[in-house]
Simulated assay, not measured.
Amino acid sequence: MEWKLFATVFASVFIAELADKTQVVTLLFAADRAAGKWVVFLGAASALVLTSAIGVMAGAALSNVVNARAMSIIAGAGFIVIGAWTLYHGIRSV
Rank of each mutant, 00 (worst) to 15 (best):
L28R: 10
M71A: 08
G43W: 03
A11R: 01
N67P: 04
A11Q: 06
G83N: 03
A19C: 11
R92A: 09
A19H: 01
A34H: 05
V94I: 07
G78V: 00
A47T: 04
W85E: 14
S52I: 04
A75H: 06
L5D: 13
D20Q: 14
W3S: 10
W3F: 12
K21M: 05
G59L: 13
K37I: 03
V66L: 15
Q23I: 02
A16H: 08
I74V: 12
G59S: 11
G83K: 04
S52G: 15
G43D: 04
D32K: 14
V81I: 12
V24T: 03
R33W: 05
A34I: 01
W85V: 15
D32C: 13
I82A: 13
G55K: 09
G36K: 15
Q23E: 11
S46P: 09
R92K: 04
L48Y: 05
L5Q: 09
R69M: 11
A34M: 12
V66W: 11
G76K: 11
D32S: 06
S72I: 07
Q23W: 03
I91V: 10
K4N: 14
E2A: 07
A31T: 12
A45G: 02
A70E: 02
V24K: 09
L18N: 08
A47P: 00
F29K: 15
V65L: 15
T86S: 01
I82F: 01
A77V: 05
S93G: 07
T22V: 02
I82L: 05
A35N: 04
S63Y: 00
F6K: 06
V9E: 03
L50H: 08
M71R: 03
T86Q: 00
G76I: 12
V13D: 05
F6L: 12
I80Q: 04
K37E: 08
A77C: 07
A31H: 09
D20E: 10
G36I: 06
A31D: 15
M1G: 07
H89Q: 14
S46K: 01
F14R: 02
D32A: 13
I15D: 03
E17T: 01
V94H: 11
T22M: 09
G78Q: 06
D20I: 00
N64H: 12
Q23P: 01
E17A: 07
L27Y: 13
I82C: 04
V81H: 03
D32L: 14
F79V: 09
G76A: 13
M1H: 01
